[in-house]
Design a protein around this nucleic acid. Structure first.
Lengths: 75, 75
DNA sequence: CACGAATGTAGTAGACGTACTACATTCGAC
DNA sequence: GTCGAATGTAGTACGTCTACTACATTCGTG
C-alpha cells in the first residue's frame, strides 16, 4: 500500500503510566525491541498488536493510533 | 505472534450500506480480493487499512474489529 | 569511577499482508 | 438459456512486521 503512515501515542501513554518499554512489551507479549520500533515510528503494528495495546491502556484504538497527526498537549 | 485472530464485521457493515466488495475495495484503495480475504477471515488487515475501513464506515475501530467474537444480532 | 536500567542502532530470518491474474460458481435479469 | 455482477479459490511475488541477538549510548546512583 502507499503512504502507510500511522501516528501513535504509545510513548505518551507509557510515560503517563510510568512503565518501561520492557514492561510494556512483556505485558503485550512481544519483543521489547518491537515496542521501540513502534515508538520511533519505524513501522506501524499489526491490527492484532494495535488492539492489544489499546486494550492494555484501556482506551479506544483511536486514542493511541491515528491516520492523522495528534495535536500537541498545549491545545 | 501467537493466536493472532481478529474478528471483524466488514460483511455486516458492507451489507448495511448495500455496497459491493469491489466498491468498498475501490473506496479504500486496495485490491478487491483483499477485501474478500478479510471478510473470509483468511487474515487480518494492517492497522493502516483497519483505520481506513473504520474511517470509511464512520465508526470506531472497535465496532469493526475485535479480539473477541462479536455477539449475534439477536441480543 | 563502576554499575545497572532504559533506550537506540544494526543485522538476519521467517511469517503475514497486499497486489495481481486467472478461472470457477452462484444468481438475478433479460 | 445467456449474460453480467458478485463472490470464492488458486498461485506467485514482494514488502512489512516481528523475533531475536548483540552492542552502543545516556543517565542516575553507590
Amino acid at each position: 500500500m502507499s503512504n502507510e503512515v500511522v501516528y501513535n501515542r504509545i510513548p505518551m501513554l507509557r510515560a503517563e503510566r510510568g512503565i518501561s518499554r520492557k514492561d510494556l512489551a512483556a505485558a503485550l507479549g512481544v519483543h521489547y525491541q518491537t515496542v521501540g520500533y513502534l515508538e520511533r515510528g519505524e513501522y506501524s503494528p499489526s491490527l492484532f498488536l494495535a488492539l492489544k495495546i489499546a486494550e492494555y491502556f484501556e482506551v479506544p484504538v483511536e486514542v493511541v493510533f491515528s491516520l492523522h497527526p495528534f495535536a500537541r498537549l498545549g491545545s
